[in-house]
């Protein structure tokens, strides 16, 4: 489905706080309404990007634009399978998690290719940025990159995105028990590897995390 300009006239969903906008958007997508794709993107792109960033970090080898585009292409192409329109947000998060999973797998498979740095815009270097914290964030994603993809996802969703265990299970499409097992493994492995990262030393001085 092709996305149209958001400036095109749209039905009642155009107000800031519509009543159950998910219903309107899903119906619009199923009916092939041109505005619905834009409405979906406008409503969920920022939160989806945030989720992807939390899971994948700011790794220069991940083209976030491609990943985000894939999420929405997948969503637009499979909206017919969505049974409960009110679950649109959760459904989209699930697609984002699976897309991130594929990106992690791809990155692992292609790691041998990355021995030169592609040309790109540098990260923002404003004076008020906490460089120590930024280095720590990079270190965390370096550690995560060494975990199996499913454990990487479980850890990132639980500890970086802050999802509840049930949400993690739902996003991963597994049972609660499996999610717990996976998370326990991920935490153990993460802690072992993170202790070798000097930039993360100070993060082990806190009380036990929930």
């Amino acid at each position: 489905m092709m996305l149209r300009s958001v400036h095109q006239p749209a039905p009642s969903h155009a107000s800031v706080v519509p009543l159950h906008p998910e219903l309107v958007i899903v119906q619009g997508l199923k009916d092939g309404q041109p505005w619905a794709g834009s409405a979906l993107f406008e409503r969920y792109s920022a939160s989806t990007l945030r989720l992807l960033r939390r899971v994948l970090g700011h790794d220069r080898h991940v083209d976030m634009e491609d990943v985000l585009q894939d999420v929405f292409l997948e969503a637009l192409g499979s909206v017919g399978s969505l049974k409960d329109p009110l679950a649109l947000g959760g459904w989209l998060r699930k697609i984002a998690v699976h897309t991130a999973y594929r990106a992690i797998r791809r990155r692992k498979a292609r790691r041998w290719l990355y021995f030169w740095e592609p040309s790109e815009l540098p990260e923002v270097s404003l004076p008020e940025v906490d460089f120590v914290a930024r280095d720590a964030c990079h270190a965390v994603y370096r550690v995560l990159a060494r975990l199996p993809a499913d454990e990487h996802l479980a850890f990132a969703l639980r500890h970086l995105e802050g999802q509840e265990l049930t949400e993690v299970a739902h996003s991963l499409g597994v049972s609660l028990a499996t999610a717990k097992r996976r998370l326990t493994k991920a935490e153990g492995r993460f802690e072992m590897l993170a202790r070798r990262e000097p930039r993360l030393d100070s993060y082990f001085d806190e009380e036990e995390a929930p």
């Binding site: 920022a46 990007l49 945030r50 960033r53 939390r54 990260e123 923002v124 404003l126 008020e128 940025v129 906490d130 914290a133 930024r134 720590a136 964030c137 965390v140 500890h159 970086l160 802050g162 935490e187 993460f190 802690e191 993170a194 993360l200 993060y203 082990f204 001085d205 806190e206 036990e208 995390a209 929930p210």
Partner: peptide
């Protein structure tokens, strides 16, 4: 787990607020 993920999250929040992705 003894890793302070909550604190890291707060720092990520701050970094993301500084990096607009519009």
């Amino acid at each position: 787990m003894r890793f302070a993920a909550k604190r890291l999250c707060a720092e990520l929040e701050r970094a993301e607020a500084e990096n607009a992705e519009d």
